[in-house]
C-alpha cells in the first residue's frame, strides 16, 4: 500500500537528467574513539530530494552534518575521505567553511527560530552575508523567501512579531525561509517534521516537493512514508554503513539488501 502511494505521487525522473551535485567518497567519521561512519560512498543529485533512512544511531544524521561541515562544531569529531560540492572538495584547506554553509543551508530537527521578529529571522542570513544593499532589497528577499517557504500569507501582517510565537509547523517553515534567504544551492534537512503534527508535516512535505525545482535537498527521516512521498532517491544506513542506495521507487518495491527490506517493512528499527 505504502509503495503504491509512492508510485502514484511522482513521475519517476530518470537518473541521467540530473547532474551529481555532491559526491561523498570513503567518508569516515569518528567521535573520539568511536567510529560513527564507515567508508560511505554516496552521491546527491541536483534538483532531487535524497532521503537518508535507517534506524537510530545508524549515522544518517552524521553523514548529513558532514555535508556542510557542521561536525566541525563538535570537538571530538574527525572526518576523513572526500566530499565534493560541484567537484570541489569541501574539506580542502582552501575552503571557507562560512561560505560553504551559505551554499549548503540546513534545517534542524526542532524548529529553532531566533528569539527575534519573523522579519529579523529571515533577514539574518542576508544581513551577515551582505546580500542586500538597501532596505527595499532586504524587504524583497524576506518576502520572496517567506513566499517560497509557503508561509507568507500567514505572517505577512505580523512580520515584526516574535518568531517564537508561531506554531511548531509555522516555525519550521520560517526556518526553511530563513535557510532559503541566503540563496543556498543545497538544503539539508535533519528530520524536519519529527516535532510536528501530521497536518504541519503534510504542509512541510508539500513545500519540500516544490523546493526541489530550485534546490538540491537532502533529508534525514525516520518515517518510511515520508521518504517514499518526498524523495526521488533513498539511501539506507545501518550501524554506520551505507547499506544500499538507489531510486526511491526501487528501494521501496524491490530492495537488493535484506536489511533494507526488513527495515522498510518494519521488522526492525
Amino acid at each position: 500500500m505504502l509503495t503504491d502511494v509512492a508510485m502514484e505521487q511522482k513521475l519517476a525522473p530518470t537518473q541521467d537528467q540530473h547532474m551529481i551535485k555532491i559526491q561523498g567518497q570513503e567518508v569516515c567519521v569518528h567521535y573520539g574513539e568511536k567510529q560513527a561512519l564507515f567508508s560511505v560512498n554516496l552521491d546527491v543529485r541536483e534538483n532531487q530530494v535524497t532521503a537518508l533512512i535507517g534506524p537510530s544511531g545508524c549515522g544518517k544524521s552524521t553523514f548529513l552534518r558532514c555535508l556542510n561541515r557542521m561536525n566541525d562544531t563538535i570537538d571530538s569529531a574527525r572526518v576523513s575521505g572526500t566530499i565534493t560540492l560541484d567537484g570541489e572538495n569541501i574539506y580542502d584547506k582552501a575552503i571557507d567553511v562560512v561560505e560553504l554553509r551559505a551554499r549548503v543551508g540546513m534545517v534542524f530537527q526542532k524548529p529553532n527560530p531566533f528569539p527575534k521578529s519573523i522579519y529579523e529571522n529571515v533577514a539574518y542570513g542576508p544581513r551577515i552575508h551582505g546580500l542586500a544593499k538597501k532596505k527595499a532589497d532586504l524587504d524583497e528577499i524576506v518576502e520572496t523567501s517567506l513566499k517560497k517557504a509557503a508561509i507568507w500569507n500567514e505572517v505577512k501582517d505580523r512580520l515584526h512579531e516574535a518568531g517564537t510565537g508561531l506554531s511548531g509547523g509555522q516555525q519550521q517553515r520560517l526556518c526553511i525561509a530563513r535557510a532559503i534567504a541566503v540563496s543556498p544551492e543545497v538544503i539539508l534537512m535533519d528530520e524536519p517534521c519529527s516535532a510536528l503534527d501530521p497536518i504541519a508535516t503534510a504542509r512541510v512535505e508539500e513545500l519540500i516537493d516544490e523546493l526541489r525545482q530550485n534546490y538540491t535537498i537532502v533529508i534525514v527521516t525516520h518515517s518510511m512514508q515520508q521518504a517514499a512521498r518526498v524523495s526521488q532517491r533513498t539511501a539506507m544506513f545501518h550501524l554506520g554503513y551505507l547499506v544500499e542506495e538507489g531510486d526511491t521507487d526501487k528501494m521501496f518495491t524491490n530492495p537488493d539488501d535484506k536489511r533494507t527490506q526488513d527495515y522498510i517493512t518494519g521488522r526492525f528499527g
Binding site: 557542521m70 562560512v98 561560505e99 551559505a102 543551508g105 534542524f108 531566533f114 539574518y124 551577515i128 526556518c175
Partner: peptide, 21 residues
C-alpha cells in the same frame, strides 16, 4: 544549542553568532 547551530548553519561566523544571536 539549537540557536547556535541555526546561526552557524546559515553561514555565520562564531563571533557573528555570539553578537547577533
Amino acid at each position: 544549542r539549537a540557536m547556535h547551530d541555526g546561526s552557524l548553519g546559515l553561514g555565520a561566523t562564531r563571533s557573528e553568532t555570539m553578537r547577533r544571536v
